[in-house]
Nucleic acid binder design. Structure first.
Lengths: 232, 232
DNA sequence: GGTATACAACTTGTATACACTGTTGGCCGT
DNA sequence: ACGGCCAACAGTGTATACAAGTTGTATACC
């Protein structure tokens, strides 16, 4: 309790790198030499190594045994895989959250408050600030869903996918019209969840994911072939 | 190709520990001091640490920040979570495998051969040897399904759950009658897969998992409460 | 001119020494 | 006898030195 940091240097390096990869500041394909990270972070090789291994386990870094680490690349294939997988997991999580909310008034209150915030966001004029505010709110919503998920495996797996999704958002530019639609999708999810309608809530998540994927593909569609790496 | 080991010491330690945990030789709750593992494995602390972190990421080891690692405990809750999660993932994987097999004659041949082996197993007299042979075959079947899964996330996640399942099997004793039923369940899966009936294949997996869970709960049911740790 | 080979720089893999924290047992005081 | 304090210990977190492998380049040879 008295620990100055509570977090080890490995934690700090891990968090910092994860954030930079998520934000796209470290572009896909960027080589991550341990020594370079040592200079950059001030930590020694041991915690840097640990952070790299963790990132590799999360799929944010590609690790080649004796030749170093790179920020993982993003292919059209990997995007499709990611969203297919999310489409499998997140409706299930939403179902659990819906049932949890039905049984827990406090949780219901939290989601009701978020619904109000989404509605308020919907009425704001489109702007970069609104987009930022929306995505920040959507993040909190997602975390609330994750938190309401009882199944440890499901919770951890979904949480591990989030940085990938966030990175995609940050690598492609935000489309204001997409925000418009996404707000209404979130309202639909909130309504179903608050109504205790698990099927509808799950369907809402699935639709939301399908729409997100379509938008991302539209904004990313560039390369000649399918297996082409987008960035890096 | 000329590398003497191809595998780093961290890999070796990781693999060894994983196997020992899976087999139950290292019981849940067993403290895993780094120094003890250093003596035990002959490697130095660095690879030992890396192996421990990896095992922790896989959920086979519980890591308490400044006080060491223990083999992760198994609770009724964790068993339920595991099987609920598998029930979400594996039918989806089976669907993918079914479609892959429909499109790939070579793959179909592999599964047909396995079906034959399952049938042969069914005709053997019940014995410990048959049980071992069956589980070895079932393992190969599972890996074939995993291998036929196109989605990287799905594949990796399912693969990561396998050691947990195997450990449960090894911690509870094998029930010969369960083997009997499980063989027929696998035959049903093979038939559906070879017939290209994805729905039936998925349903077969779901039933198989439900039966497995029921058996494990029957064989483990002991403790007073729900949250009670079984071993360690 | 092209190819093979030896070398050099750099990278990761491993071992070990040091720093710091949490725990445990005993001791003292009450 | 019981409870709290303190010190020795054990264990992890970190830094760094050393070993081994890989890649790219320059050079010699065909």
């Amino acid at each position: 309790m008295s620990a100055p940091g509570e977090a080890s240097k490995a934690d700090l390096v891990h968090r910092q790198l994860k954030e930079e990869i998520e934000l796209g500041e470290l572009a896909p394909g960027t080589p991550l030499s341990e020594l370079w990270l040592v200079e950059r972070t001030g930590a020694s090789r041991t915690p840097v190594r640990e952070a790299l291994r963790r990132l590799a386990a999360e799929g944010l870094v590609d690790l080649a045994p004796r030749q170093g680490a790179r920020v993982s690349r993003v292919s059209l294939r990997s995007v499709r895989d990611l969203f297919d997988f999310r489409s499998l997991l997140e409706p299930a999580a939403m179902r659990e959250a819906t049932e949890a909310a039905a049984a827990d008034p406090e949780l219901r209150r939290v989601f009701a408050a978020m619904r109000t915030e989404f509605a308020r966001t919907a009425r704001r004029v489109p702007s970069q600030a609104r987009s930022r505010a929306f995505y920040e709110l959507a993040d909190r919503f997602d975390w609330a869903i994750i938190g309401a998920t009882g199944n440890e495996h499901l919770r951890r797996t979904i949480a591990e996918l989030r940085p990938h999704t966030a990175r995609l958002r940050n690598l492609s530019h935000v489309d204001p019209r997409r925000v418009e639609v996404s707000v209404t999708e979130h309202l639909r999810m909130c309504d179903a969840l608050l109504a205790g309608d698990a099927d509808e809530a799950a369907a809402a998540v699935a639709d939301h994911l399908a729409q997100s994927l379509a938008t991302i593909f539209r904004n990313l569609a560039v390369g000649p072939g399918d297996g082409v790496d987008l960035l890096g």
